[in-house]
Design a protein around this nucleic acid. Sequence first.
DNA 1: GGCAGTTCTATATAGACAGCATGTC
DNA 2: CTATATAGAACTGCC
Length: 513
Amino acid sequence: MLDEIQKLALETIQINKQALIFLPSRASAEKTAEDLSHLTSLSQPDLEHAILKVVSSPTKQCRRLSHCIKKGIAFHHSGLTNDQKDIIETAFREGKIKIICCTPTLAAGVSTPAFRVLIKSLKRFNDRWGQDWIPVLEYLQMVGRAGRPEFEKFGEAIVIAKNEAEKEEIYEKYICGVPEDIYSKLAAEPTLRTYLLSLIASGIIRDNNSMHEFFSKTFWAHQYQDLPKLQTIINKMLTMLKDWEFITLTNSVSNNSEFTPASKLNQPKEQQMRATLLGKRTSELYLDPLTAKHLLDNLNNFTNNKKNFSLLQMISHTLEMRPLLRVKAKEQDYIQEQLVKNYDSLLKEEPSAYDLDYDDFINSIKTALFFSEWIEEKDEDYLLEKYNIRPGEVKVKLDLAEWLLYASEELSKIKNNNHAIKEIHKLRLRLQYGVKEELLALLKLKGIGRIRARKLYLNNLKDIGDIKTVDLTTLSQILGKALAEDVKQQVGEDVPKQISSKKRLGQMSLGKY
DNA sequence: GGCAGTTCTATATAGACAGCATGTC
DNA sequence: CTATATAGAACTGCC
């Protein structure tokens, strides 16, 4: 039996228009798309192929998407790679795809208007309260996708209610509702301490006076009526930044009170705030000071007997890496086993099992294991099966890892930790390409990535020297003629002119088709 | 035994922004 | 204001 969403979707196709269907989770987006795809007779075989080849080994998610898309239906959420998202958005604009089942990704990103917007539910899971109403602002963003001004005079947005009571509630809350106030992001402590440090580093805040002047002007202070409390939080953070050696506080007035009354804020005080070298660099790197401190502490223990796993666990156990890969009930034993195996690699002691942080710690082990497997050349399909991480998320996590390791490398430079600098640098390269160490030499060549490098290595071509000495015919068999010639040129071997110009032609046509 | 259909249970739950400098299949 | 949908396992009944 068809449900309301399905009826509306099929009817949209029938009148030769397009629809976006917003769903509250990625799983429902996929399932809704899959179910619909069984109900249409559209056909887009070329898209099916395009979706599959964006990763080296298509995952079950890629296959599912390709099956939907060949029937003119797509799902769209953060688990997809950017390439896949682009293909879908373009095909939708071209009218090849009729329905996109999506999460709110599509409400915020590039403009993708549709004649009709269907909203399955205005509730979504929320960490604090479980199932809860989404903000009115978000509702407006979704609804705003209905109607394409260049083609239609109007658009339709339809919200599904479970019953009469909910219908009333939705009407009151959303149709008649007003968007909630935008709350200042500064209110979150990580943002506040990051800002505070950067303001001190840039010299905008140099003492209590300029600090008060700045914060009283922000939207945050405006909303945050309780100034004494605000002052308390800021003071707490200043002390933290000082203890962590990101700033220095010099003052002639005694500083033993953390609860400076607001009334004293306006009095010019002699307390001077200056960022240290470490503080400046932390700020330039856009690091949360808490994370910077965590990295510094860990790196301090990064001695010769430590491994890549040490660094990977270090960056996995940060706020920035959240949400971490979650350890499932069935995996507990395996993860514990791996933890024991890598116990000596830890740069910080394992927290107590009663520690609030323990879950995060265990999850950081799983996350670190995922990174470890990536640099052991495991492909996307394997990673999705074993770690339940989708291609789009893999990309995001790797980017984060890259950034945090870059930051770690920079911090190590300030600390003159040469061992760490060397190891981190190598690890960054491996993460970037997803390769074992033995392939690093080959990756210096343009046009050679994890797949081709591995292929060369298997053919006993293990470094630049091997590439130089091997004959062109053999190399061509491995890489294809055009690339083989290009690579030969890169290592300084002469390739006959006429052949090399032929190569360019060949390359162009390759790129085109 | 082997399947189709059913019920039970475990699992997950939206998204994206930071540095830096270009290029994989 | 602590729910729900989904996937997959386990189970059932039937041939």
